[in-house]
Amino acid sequence: MKNKNIIIAGAVIAIIISVMAPFLASSNPDGLDMNLINLVGGGNEEHAEEFIGERAPIEYEAPMPDYSIEGMGKLGEVVAIVAGTLLMLGISLGLAKVLGKKQGT
């Protein structure tokens, strides 16, 4: 089935991006966070984080916060992002197969 090639090509491109991301991606705060720092924290990142932390309605600990694994540095980031990419590949393929049309072979 040549359509398998679509998954393989997509997975290869996505994994290449995932491996490069920890080295190439900008660590500057994103547009929303920048606004939070300036408009809420008065230009101070810690003040903004404190403000948000006090208001947080739930305490939830994600297994790999900020796309990193504690104590593993850049390698941990690569592992985290690649794992997320593979997880997304599996979830979207699984969901699409369950929902999609069953066509006769």
């Binding site: 679509i6 997975a11 996505a14 995932s18 490069m20 997320g84 590949l89 979207s92 699409a96």
Partner: peptide
């Protein structure tokens, strides 16, 4: 859909 799912996740890590 699967290829896009993986690709979108990866590209979102690239700030």
């Amino acid at each position: 859909l699967a290829a896009l799912g993986a690709g979108i996740f990866a590209i979102q890590a690239m700030n």
